[in-house]
């Protein structure tokens, strides 16, 4: 390349008049086997893999809508939080007694810190010239251990989480304005149903909503008196007439939907 004072320019610009780089592909013969040009030969293969991947990915977005829970209510006292799945192993780690409590520093900082620093500095910790996994058992062993730990902790977090409750807790609830002048609503308040099932029958925390249920009046009465699931018996202790009004009220809300 011509440099310095003798360089020729096109007019007054800084564009050199000639000296184009020749387009000669580089020679890569150090590796065995057949090589091929990146474009278009190899890129086509990569794009085929990409296209197959994309089909699967798009199917996923169509089949499984991205989840959205109800709008955040930071005052909700019963919600059990869960991080995104790829943080679950760290979250689970904090459940163990030697990684929490007085040892919180160990679980929240020392263990993950050591693991991630080791990952970052792996080339300087594993310095030998050998590359095959079985020729460097320490590096391979630690990595296998770490991967196993991540899988185990994630699995533990998933299996100990109450997914049913989580689903109920996060559900987007349609708030139906109920008829509060209904005589049954007074019974609903008096018999403390309201504290668990909410002012609009929307359910509180993990307690279910009373809207959109498919039960007869007799069934509702039976549940009010004898309980169901985690709802204890004898919460209702009013008269037979009040029970009738209560059932009628709950049914009326469900019918008007």
């Amino acid at each position: 390349m011509h440099r310095g004072k003798g360089m020729k320019f096109v007019g007054d610009s800084r564009v050199p008049a000639s000296h184009r780089k020749p387009n000669i592909p580089k020679d890569y013969s150090e590796y065995p086997g057949k090589t091929e040009a990146f474009y278009p030969d190899f890129l086509l293969k990569e794009w085929i893999v990409g296209a197959v991947f994309l089909i699967g990915f798009l199917c996923l977005t169509i089949v499984e809508p991205a989840p959205l829970e109800r709008i955040a209510d930071p005052t909700d006292t019963t919600y059990i939080p869960l991080p995104d799945w790829y943080f679950m192993f760290l979250y689970q780690l904090l459940k163990y007694s030697y990684a929490s409590g007085d040892y919180n520093f160990l679980g929240a900082f020392v263990i993950p810190g050591l693991a991630f620093t080791a990952l970052l500095l792996a080339p300087f910790l594993d310095r030998g010239p050998k590359r095959r996994p079985k020729d460097r058992p320490i590096a391979t062993g630690f990595m296998l251990l770490a991967v196993a730990a991540i899988f185990y902790l994630t699995w533990e977090a998933i299996s100990t989480h109450d997914w049913e409750a989580a689903k109920r807790q996060g559900e987007i609830k349609e708030i139906v304005e109920v008829d509060k002048s209904h005589p049954g609503y007074e019974v609903y308040q008096q018999q403390t149903c309201i504290s668990c099932h909410g002012g609009n029958l929307e359910g509180v925390g993990t307690n279910p909503a009373l809207t959109g249920i498919d039960r007869t009046a007799d069934e509702i009465k039976d549940i009010a008196v004898n309980g169901i699931g985690s709802m204890p018996a004898n919460i209702f202790n009013g008269t037979e007439e009040e029970l009738e009004q209560l059932a009628e009220f709950i049914l009326s809300v469900n019918e008007s939907e």
């Binding site: 184009r20 780089k21 387009n23 592909p25 580089k26 020679d27 890569y28 590796y31 065995p32 086997g33 057949k34 090589t35 091929e36 040009a37 990146f38 474009y39 030969d41 190899f42 293969k45 893999v49």
Partner: peptide
Amino acid sequence: TPLWRDIADHEVPEHVNP
């Protein structure tokens, strides 16, 4: 031309080629 030629023409060895 040299800008993209460098990327386009580089050889891809066999052992990474599925």
